[in-house]
Amino acid sequence: MQLPAVADVRRRGLGHPPRSHATACPKVEALELRLAAEADRRTVGDRVGATDTASWWSHETRQDKPAAKRRMRLAESLDRHTPTSAALAEGAISVDHARVITDCVDRLPGDLPDPSIPERAEKHLLTEALDLDPRSLAILAKHVLTVVAPEIGEDRDARALEREEREARANAWLTMCPDGKGSYRGKFSIPTMQGAMLRKMLLAFAAPKHQAATKDGDAEQDQVERRPSPERMGDAFCELIERLPAHELPKLGGLNASIIVLLDFTGLKSDIGRAVLETGEPISASLARRMACEAGLIPAVLGSRSELLDLGRTARPFNGAQRLGLVLTQRVCTAIGCDWPAHLCHAHHDDSWLSGGETNMDKARLLCPRHHARIHDPRFETMIHPDNQVTFHMWT
């Protein structure tokens, strides 16, 4: 195969920004992928000083680098799967179909007793691709061995599915952070089962009947019906979080994993003012009042309802009321320069319990796990400052 000059490649499609899979002709996509594979064989990226061919392709076509790498992997895979490559070149299947088929065949175990099984699996998936969309084809591909080699496939597919589930759980992740504009933003990846559970919960809240039941007036109901699905799902996620019973959640720092809101009595009664979360982030007084309708209120002046703030020598661990008092008054780890949040800190006795110290609030402080270990380390000298913060100095 003659590799066209760069200018010619651009005219033929490889050098232009890629069109979406929904609009691009599969034949053109197939040609671009063949050219990309040939460019990789010729190490075009190395010749122009790029990290690799995918990086060169990304730069030349102004496409996203991760997308270019995914397309390059597909191009390399199509080189090994002639039937799928031919079907794509003929326009019989889409690029998404081709990706599903090549990924499935490439994932097949290498110790299959019959070397013809991968070829049979590829042909079976190509046949099914004529009638299925890529998503449905991907579901079918998960148990392709059961279809093409039932004598071994059922057991192999079951083990592969279990392995996939274990890996998905082990690789689950979530990131979130405040954006400084009154919202938190984040991303996550969770296994299929938990993802389906979460989706079902959100749909229950986002369903039009539920939305209509929680709104007043026909105009509001019409607005609910017309709102885009992502917005309804966002509302549903907020409602799901608000409805989680705090008393059933695991303990966090000796307390239920609930948010503490600081609000004076005037703000609670009026339409103005603001409240402050234990993290220091502000919320409106109106939101705090709305949440107060469904949540238990804990007065900021602790010690009510006969909750003991000073236990003396009756118990070593700090109780829930004392933990709450420490969270409200100290907010973060008391070591200077440490911003570890209060709900993840340990409660420490300034006067050691073993030396006769009492479990009282005036001799208690919050320390993160690292600084709590350091305060008990004899190699360090501890100094408590007038503002109740603490510093550490290593003995020389």
Score class of each variant (00 low, 15 high):
7 A>C: 00
8 D>E: 14
8 D>L: 11
11 R>S: 13
12 R>L: 11
14 L>N: 08
16 H>S: 11
26 P>I: 06
28 V>G: 06
32 E>H: 13
33 L>Q: 06
35 L>D: 10
47 R>T: 12
50 A>V: 11
51 T>I: 08
57 W>N: 07
58 S>G: 08
62 R>H: 14
66 P>V: 03
69 K>P: 00
71 R>N: 15
74 L>T: 07
77 S>W: 00
82 T>M: 01
89 A>Y: 00
97 H>C: 12
102 T>C: 15
110 G>T: 07
111 D>I: 07
116 S>T: 14
117 I>C: 08
118 P>I: 05
122 E>Q: 13
124 H>Q: 14
127 T>Q: 10
127 T>H: 01
128 E>C: 15
129 A>E: 06
132 L>Y: 12
134 P>R: 01
142 K>D: 09
144 V>S: 03
146 T>E: 01
147 V>L: 02
147 V>R: 10
154 E>W: 05
154 E>H: 15
158 A>R: 02
164 E>S: 13
168 A>N: 06
174 L>I: 02
178 P>F: 00
181 K>E: 00
190 I>M: 05
191 P>Q: 02
193 M>N: 02
194 Q>R: 08
199 R>N: 05
200 K>A: 14
202 L>P: 02
203 L>V: 01
204 A>C: 01
216 D>P: 01
224 V>D: 12
225 E>F: 15
228 P>M: 07
231 E>A: 12
235 D>E: 15
246 A>N: 07
255 L>T: 10
263 L>M: 15
271 D>V: 10
274 R>I: 11
275 A>Y: 08
275 A>E: 08
279 T>V: 01
285 A>H: 06
286 S>E: 15
289 R>S: 00
295 A>W: 02
296 G>S: 14
298 I>G: 08
298 I>R: 10
304 S>L: 09
312 G>K: 12
312 G>R: 14
316 R>P: 03
321 A>G: 14
324 L>M: 12
346 H>Q: 13
347 A>T: 10
352 S>R: 06
356 G>K: 03
356 G>S: 09
358 E>S: 12
359 T>P: 08
359 T>S: 04
362 D>Y: 06
368 C>P: 11
371 H>W: 08
377 D>N: 15
380 F>S: 13
381 E>M: 04
385 H>R: 12
385 H>L: 08
387 D>P: 10
387 D>G: 13
388 N>M: 04
395 W>K: 13
